[in-house]
């Protein structure tokens, strides 16, 4: 057990180190990535730019800059942004994290419930109209880009039908911390949750349906039915349990990467200032410290989520253990 945990930790360090180095290299390989002129300001004199360059340590060799950045990020935690001078990176990410966490967690609950329900229902009525309908909607969900869905939702709830009884409860776009006003937090998150979950309900529903149908053909199912177990019990207990593995694996990957900031489009469209939006803003202006921080933050969650999911899979299906 301990060995497994240690090996996972080692893996996390390797992955994060690898990504940080790659990010660093990509940044400096990009022409016009030098932030000195952007920091110094429009039409700055050459001396001013030089002064800024020295001030930010941009004239030191790459590995020194890398080392300093890592030190400032993890040890002294006083790393500052290139774009917003004086803005501390670590508190900024920490402040943005709850928004993303709220968004992704809520959506995750919705999409797991929705996906599982969809998958089981579609598999149970396989070939008949509920199956066709659900799979049709699922495919629609997968094919509609999240930024488009989000904008359409806003178009309806904030603009066209804003004053009707149906949507007048929808508050202004933006994130309110739960501790500040739970009611407002909930109301402002409903549509972001639904928008983000929509795509994944489609994906997971589809995967689960196929998985259940396949598992249904397995021997042990036939045995269970021969033994007299009714259809529903068989379905739920045996088939799903086996078919759910790929869903759990996908969930780990999706949740990890979304909490790390991949939900950027949803965040921007709904005005939720989370880690995703932070990453996106940093990319637009090539703000290396912020990019580095958010990339490492994301990779941390990806690795942790995958580790947790692997453990879960072992519990669900012991066949996955290595002999």
């Amino acid at each position: 057990m301990l060995a497994a945990i240690l090996s996972r930790l080692l893996r996390m360090v390797v992955v994060m180190f690898g990504i940080s180095v790659i990010t660093f290299l990509i940044f400096f390989a990009t022409p016009s990535s030098d932030p000195a002129a952007r920091i110094a300001g429009k039409n700055a004199a050459q001396e001013t730019i030089e002064a800024v360059r020295k001030d930010f340590g941009l004239d030191r060799p790459l590995y020194v800059q890398y080392g300093l950045m890592m030190k400032r990020l993890f040890i002294t935690r006083d790393l500052t942004s290139f774009a917003n001078r004086g803005q501390q990176i670590v508190p900024a990410v920490a402040a943005a994290a709850p928004a993303t966490l709220s968004l992704v967690s809520g959506a995750a609950v919705l999409w797991m419930l929705g996906g599982i329900l969809t998958g089981i229902t579609a598999a149970a009525w396989r070939g008949r109209w509920p199956d066709k309908l659900l799979m049709g909607i699922s495919m629609m969900a997968v094919a509609m880009p999240v930024f488009w869905v989000g904008e359409m939702v806003n178009l309806i709830t904030q603009n066209r039908l804003h004053d009707t009884w149906a949507f007048s409860w929808v508050p202004a776009l933006g994130y309110t911390p739960f501790s500040q006003d739970p009611g407002l937090w909930f109301r402002s998150m409903v549509f972001p949750w639904l928008t983000l979950a929509f795509l994944y309900i489609g994906l997971y529903g589809r995967m689960l349906r196929t998985g259940i149908i396949e598992t249904y053909q397995e021997d042990f199912i036939r045995t269970a039915r021969a033994k007299g177990l009714t259809g529903r019990k068989v379905l739920l207990k045996h088939a799903t349990r086996s078919a759910i593995i790929p869903i759990v694996i996908m969930f780990g990957m999706d949740f990890g990467v979304l909490v790390g900031g991949a939900a950027v489009l949803t965040e921007v469209v709904f005005g939720i200032n989370g880690v995703g939006r932070l990453t996106y803003q940093a990319l637009k202006v090539l703000d290396l410290p912020m990019i580095m921080a958010t990339v490492l933050y994301a990779s941390f969650f990806v690795v942790v989520a995958n580790a947790v999911v692997d453990l879960l899979c072992l519990l669900i299906d012991p066949r996955m253990r290595r002999a």
Binding site: E151, Q158, H162, L173, G174, V268, V269, F270, G271, N273
Partner: peptide, 10 residues
């Protein structure tokens, strides 16, 4: 935060 469209709506 948000987008230009959202600001107009607001």
């Amino acid at each position: 935060g948000g987008t230009e469209e959202a600001a107009v709506n607001a």
